[in-house]
């Protein structure tokens, strides 16, 4: 593998977004790019990430390879890169190590690091194609604020999407709270718009602890999309220029 990324900051943000959810995971490298799928220890949340091969220049791969990485170790090495550095990932066919090269834009500094890889026997889940009943896109900073605010009052949040809007509500020992968003279109700054596409009303309850965790991906994209259907896991997606980070969260069941 040899994959060169114009901005090391992209990988730094991706790893920052997922390192508190999963510790060890495989980076699966194939023709479509570098992908990752991993569940948290409780098997309640799943992260699915893709950095498309088009996002690298060049992207060269002789045969598919799984890079078993400890994300804490990778974070330590990525801290040694500036966000604007050019990052090159290199690995042999049956690699024991992953090589990371950081070059500054002026081309007068080259840093070379290697991290040890590990064999990870990772469970892969098949995620069915789903036509969601509701898709809500909103500023990622707003979603983060709602999750943090409501998490002060409660462990869980009810998300209800209807024609009127989307309502996040919670109740706990000290009281209760809710935030309702209505659809609006910001012509000058589309990334600040809230869009609600609905085929039928949805009401689901989720653990806020995980949602707060997902919001660490807010640095990746100014927009987040929540996709919901009754009785299926929530999809929280942060799209990047050439790739995505998606989180799935199992709903709470029964009252």
């Amino acid at each position: 593998l040899e994959a060169r990324l114009e901005q090391a900051g992209v990988l730094k943000k991706v790893v920052d977004a997922i390192k508190d959810l999963v510790q060890d995971c495989n980076f699966d490298c194939n023709d479509s790019g570098i992908a990752l799928q991993a569940m948290d220890n409780s098997h309640v949340a799943l992260v699915s990430m893709l950095l498309k091969s088009e996002g690298f220049s060049p992207y060269r791969l002789d045969r598919n390879v799984a890079l078993g990485v400890n994300l804490t170790s990778l974070t330590k090495v990525l801290r040694c890169a500036q966000n604007e550095d050019i990052l090159t990932l290199k690995a042999e066919d049956a690699p024991d190590t992953l090589s990371l090269v950081f070059e500054n834009a002026e081309n007068d500094r080259i840093s070379e690091y290697e991290i040890k890889l590990m064999d990870i026997d990772q469970e892969h889940l098949g995620i069915p194609e789903t036509e969601y009943a509701a898709a809500i896109s909103m500023p990622s900073a707003e979603f983060q604020r709602i999750c943090r605010d409501l998490n002060q009052l409660s462990e869980s949040v009810a998300i209800e999407a209807s024609k009127e809007g989307v309502k996040f509500s919670c109740s706990g020992d000290i009281g209760s709270g809710s935030v309702t968003l209505r659809q609006h279109n910001n012509v000058d700054r589309p990334e600040l718009s809230t869009k609600i596409e609905l085929t039928e009303p949805v009401a689901l309850t989720f653990s806020l602890k995980y949602l707060v965790n997902f919001c660490k991906a807010s640095a990746l994209s100014s927009v987040v999309t929540l996709s919901l259907s009754n009785e299926v896991p929530l999809l929280v997606e942060y799209a990047m220029g050439s790739g995505f980070v998606r989180f799935y969260l199992a709903p709470k069941i029964g009252e």
């Binding site: 569940m39 309640v44 799943l46 892969h124 889940l125 098949g126 199992a250 709470k252 069941i253 029964g254």
Partner: peptide, 14 residues
């Protein structure tokens, strides 16, 4: 209070 089910309830193993 509601129970937290795991993702295995929804997603099959590949």
């Amino acid at each position: 209070p509601a129970d937290q089910g795991s993702l295995h309830r929804y997603f099959g193993q590949r």
